[in-house]
Design a protein around this nucleic acid. Structure first.
Lengths: 225, 225
DNA sequence: GCACGCAAGTTTGCATACAAATTTCATTTC
DNA sequence: GAAATGAAATTTGTATGCAAACTTGCGTGC
């Protein structure tokens, strides 16, 4: 999971990190009410840091206000689709920037991660997840735009509590590798538009697989271009 | 100014709204330390809602932690450039979605706003600002993706405390109208890629003007494609 | 004249107190 | 047996208390 901006206040940040992880992993279910005192007792702190972390979670969009208190946000299929589009916009642009202005060492790093991933066996699930993240991270880094990277992480949070993180079939590995290869080729050629297009298509396909694996109804209009 | 997600807690939200406005308008200067007790007394509330609103402001990126307490975030020219790029990514994509899937009435609304703007005189500054915002809002609405709209607003906050809102020369009006015309034409033709390209170029030119008007050094690598 | 140190004053981070609003639940009424 | 009522229990929103950490500024020694 990507880091989130740290704060000096210890407890508040700790509570935030714990709740965020529990929401994102699904340990706290969507629509589950978040009772301040329960959380405070569970984490052995007072309500003050709990309330402060809830404010941050609300701003992050992971928690929504109820008539009374807060609840874990539930994402509808359509909201997940919207997030996928935000990600296509941001990460596609990051790929184009990486192609246009990534330093040679940035690009070498991307290539190296991609080649390491090609050697994986489909059973090596943890490694597959890790190299996938590394790949996307390397591209963002090569974009030379930390704000863009932040925005991508931010948008990424939104569907982690959906089971997309568990899309782990062997098919997905092959598909992902093919997609990644197209992206890498475009970046190596310094072809910004091609890199952008390939990245968007990759995200698109990942989500198409997501709908299929989860059995969620795919919203209309997902497909672009 | 775009709305921000409201909260049930009255005071906390009020304090957040006030501080946000003061930061964004420059009433609170960058790097100015934010003393909880001062704010509490100024707004006639206790420290609790002040602290909660500071958490939200921190997550919004408008306020940064200091060794002790908080300060209004200052944006460097490079960070402003980064934000401009985020906006190019998001709003460009919104324009392409508007072209590809905006309803006829969505598109009629965009055209109407554009034509109203064409009739403005350069002295009508308030109206110019308003129709500009309306124009961009209409495109976002036509994109059919509220999350994308939110993300754009979010990214927009980041340079409001810079003087870009006050780029108000007559030249800017003419330039803006020419840019808008290109965007409108592409959307009417249902040409997504052209709309995206035109919107990116528009944002690019707006920022180029911004660097010139403010006298800030333009960071390298602003120019894409 | 400069540096150091120490004490007083701020200011924060966390905990707790308290009242108001809401929910729950048992009891009554039909 | 179902609905209504009202009192008790939760739970929140805000305020305040308190100790620790950091700053400030003055005085002292060199």
């Amino acid at each position: 999971m990507p880091p989130d901006d740290p704060l000096p206040s210890r407890l508040s940040s700790d509570v935030y990190a714990v709740l965020r992880r529990q929401i994102v992993t699904g340990e706290l279910r969507p629509n589950q009410p978040l009772i301040e005192l329960d959380i405070a007792e569970r984490l052995q702190v007072s309500r003050t840091p709990v309330r402060e972390s809830l404010q941050r979670l609300a701003h992050a969009g992971l928690v929504v206000p109820r008539k009374r208190g807060w609840a874990v946000r539930e994402f509808t299929p359509d909201e997940i689709r919207q997030n996928a589009e935000v990600r296509m916009a941001l990460e596609g642009y990051a790929a184009s920037l990486a192609a246009l202005r990534g330093s040679p060492s940035d690009i070498a790093a991307i290539v190296a991660i991609h080649e390491r991933r090609l050697k994986l066996r489909s059973s090596d699930e943890a490694m597959r997840v890790k190299t996938n993240r590394d790949f996307h991270d390397a591209i963002m880094r090569a974009s030379g735009n930390p704000r863009l990277t932040d925005a991508i992480y931010h948008s990424g949070q939104f569907y982690f509590n959906a089971p997309i993180a568990r899309v782990t079939t062997g098919e997905e590995l092959a598909l992902g590798n093919a997609d990644h290869a197209l992206i890498v080729a475009a970046i190596k050629k310094r072809d910004g538009p091609a890199a952008e297009k390939a990245m968007r298509a990759h995200i698109q396909r990942t989500f198409a697989l997501f709908w299929r694996v989860t059995g969620l109804a795919e919203p209309l209009d997902v497909r672009q271009e």
